[in-house]
Amino acid sequence: MTDTAEVTGLTDETELTGLSDTGELAGLTVTAERKWTAMGITLENVSYVYEQGTAMQTAALQGISLEIPDNQFIGLIGHTGSGKSTLVQLLNGLLRPTSGRVLYNGKDIHEDGFDKKALRANVGLVFQYPEHQLFEVDVLSDVMYGPKNLGLDEATCKKRAIQALENVGMKEKYFKTSPFDLSGGQKRRAAIAGVLAMNPRILILDEPTAGLDPRGRDEILGLISEMKQKLSMTIILVSHSMDDVARYVERIVVMGHGKKVFDDTPRNVFKHYIELEDLGLSAPQITYIMNTLRDYGMDVHTDALTVEEAAAEILRAAKRQP
């Protein structure tokens, strides 16, 4: 486990160098500069307790420190009840930490005079089952709801809404249908567009694949990674499944029992696959295959993330062996 400051230095380049066999962290030197510009969200030793002072009191988060820089693809992983949803609601100021501070671009978001609305436009949060929040007569008006709340004029709202709908791959023929007539996957896309239309710099998606069939799941995940490439923003993908995020994200934050357990590149996190199991999680299936091969005496590196990488690594090992 590396500490946050190092991981903050991870940029797209690091991801490229990270593909080398060693999987070591490069880019430690960038760290210092990054810290001073302090763009993005910073959590300082944040704790959150639900229903404090009653018998139902639950400590959902304990002493979380975290940096969310601009333009990074982050996976937030944890077993059900580990505090993921609570954490993301702290990031856009929907919940107020019981102790600790949340900073956006270096400013405390709960200080008097901080513009919360602007924060929520900059830090877009798509809740779990976001289709439950749809309410307008047609898809386009629903997506325009967010921009309208920001006080933009009708034409700009419309432009943004159409753009957002295109970015989530919604066909134009659906713009004027009722959101309640769409299929499950389409509804979810419309709901994601509703947040995207606010042009956030950081987009958080809380379990965007929950309740979808495998095909819908792959479609949504593909869409999210496409959006990341096209729109150069930070995306935080919340999930309880490593297989969902392993192939897409450049950094994984693992939550366990309200605490941050790991915060590192996927490769480094999956090295701890035994500890992950204690948290009720598992590494991607590929990690298990590679580790089993190694146990049987095959000379492979075990840090492949995708089936393709694993295949290449096995072929390479096979060639090396006499």
Binding site: Q89, N92, L94, K117, R120, A121, G124, L125, F127, P130, H132, Q133, Y145, G146, K148, N149, L150, G194, V195, M198
Partner: peptide
């Protein structure tokens, strides 16, 4: 509570 939060996240007041 949930729906309210979701709409606040979309800028509702």
């Amino acid at each position: 509570d949930k729906i309210m939060k979701a709409q606040i996240a979309r800028g509702a007041d």
